[in-house]
Simulated scan of single mutants.
Amino acid sequence: MQIYPNQFSQDINKALRPCYLIFGDEPQQKFDVIEQIRSKAKASGFVERTVLVAESGFSWNQLIEATQSMSLFSSQQFIELELPTGKPGTEGSKMLQEVAANLNPDILLLVHGPKIGKDVQRGKWFKVLDEIGVSVLCYPLEGKQLNAWINTQLQSHQLSVSPAGAKMISDFCEGNMLAAKQEIDKLALLYPQQSVSETQIEQAMVDQSRYNVFQLVDVMLNGENTRCVKMLYRLESEGLEPNIVIWALIREWEQLWKLKTALQNREPIQWQKFGIWRNRQSYYQNALNRLSIEQLEDIQQALTKADHAFKQNVIARPYIELCHLCMMFMGLDLRAVPLLDA
């Protein structure tokens, strides 16, 4: 049974499941969920804990032995199995299915790892463990979901913050929930159970937002000018290679050109045919509504020129040029402004 991270506390407070599958690329949520399992396990008598990591050279017999061994100190065994790749492989899959079939009340199994795809979730080992336990997929939160998570964290510390203050925390730490949790903990120490103003938040916090190029292109396609510039600034400060960004922009232009051509030919857009999932369709739709064929042609020329210049290392401030290119994707008329600072 799949449960969202924000619903996990309610479920584990009701009862301890025989098995937990925790996967995802958002460390703060994973840490919170796993710590809740460990705490509940200890309180329920699972004091004997075995940690296994299925890395290269791992013997799956260790898992079988752990489920069958009896401790001198406790009859209840808590087994944590980490899958560094998110996949157990053929042998591991068979072993996990065997464990699932023979899991008794004195064994508690936790399997965790990085982000996994639908192919893993459809695997037999995952399904049989999910049927007897709970799976939690932890992904980065954005927008309203991130704001809701921040408000929950603030309430847990009995901190009173205005909507503008919560939004400030979100902006400071967007893309880095671990940093957001740390900053909220800091506010709780500085202003215990108090009402915290926007000025106090601003003075206490350090901008720890962390972005990647995939988030950047989504914001760019959606036409969010200010947020896009902020992301570019952060990516530059983190030392991201500019050629990675230009590659992403070229890829998005190619996708937009295909979509725009289909619309020009009065063809209905089949989003899945273009590999665009539901959560990103609105971004592309906004860009298509905003950009004409002529603007896309101008962007192509600018991208070609910039890509060549980047590869020749003749641009002194590449991120200024990248900002210029992103603004063109947002529909700003920059044709009269020289793109390259040669």
Results as ranks from 00 to 15, higher is better:
residue 166 A to C: 06
residue 165 G to D: 02
residue 116 I to Q: 04
residue 180 A to S: 10
residue 176 N to T: 08
residue 252 E to I: 07
residue 53 V to H: 11
residue 166 A to N: 02
residue 334 L to C: 14
residue 219 V to K: 10
residue 80 E to Y: 12
residue 229 V to P: 00
residue 175 G to R: 03
residue 189 L to N: 07
residue 296 L to A: 07
residue 239 G to S: 03
residue 60 W to I: 06
residue 138 C to V: 02
residue 341 D to I: 02
residue 305 K to Y: 10
residue 28 Q to T: 11
residue 339 L to H: 06
residue 120 V to Y: 01
residue 52 L to N: 08
residue 28 Q to M: 15
residue 46 F to L: 04
residue 214 F to Y: 07
residue 220 M to T: 15
residue 136 V to H: 04
residue 79 I to H: 07
residue 157 H to A: 07
residue 281 Q to E: 00
residue 340 L to T: 09
residue 18 P to I: 07
residue 323 C to D: 14
residue 121 Q to P: 02
residue 204 A to H: 02
residue 2 Q to D: 11
residue 82 E to N: 01
residue 291 L to R: 05
residue 103 L to Y: 10
residue 193 Q to N: 09
residue 201 I to S: 06
residue 182 Q to D: 07
residue 264 Q to H: 11
residue 335 R to G: 13
residue 51 V to S: 05
residue 50 T to P: 05
residue 218 D to E: 12
residue 287 A to V: 02
residue 52 L to H: 02
residue 75 S to D: 14
residue 311 K to S: 11
residue 262 A to L: 06
residue 206 V to I: 10
residue 153 Q to Y: 02
residue 119 D to Q: 14
residue 83 L to C: 13
residue 155 Q to H: 15
residue 14 K to V: 11
residue 223 G to S: 09
residue 236 E to Y: 08
residue 338 P to M: 01
residue 138 C to A: 04
residue 203 Q to W: 05
residue 222 N to C: 04
residue 288 L to N: 00
residue 291 L to G: 05
residue 89 G to C: 03
residue 34 I to C: 08
residue 105 P to S: 07
residue 224 E to N: 14
residue 310 F to M: 09
residue 55 E to D: 14
residue 256 L to D: 10
residue 40 K to P: 02
residue 137 L to M: 10
residue 22 I to S: 08
residue 286 N to M: 09
residue 177 M to R: 08
residue 189 L to Y: 04
residue 188 A to M: 07
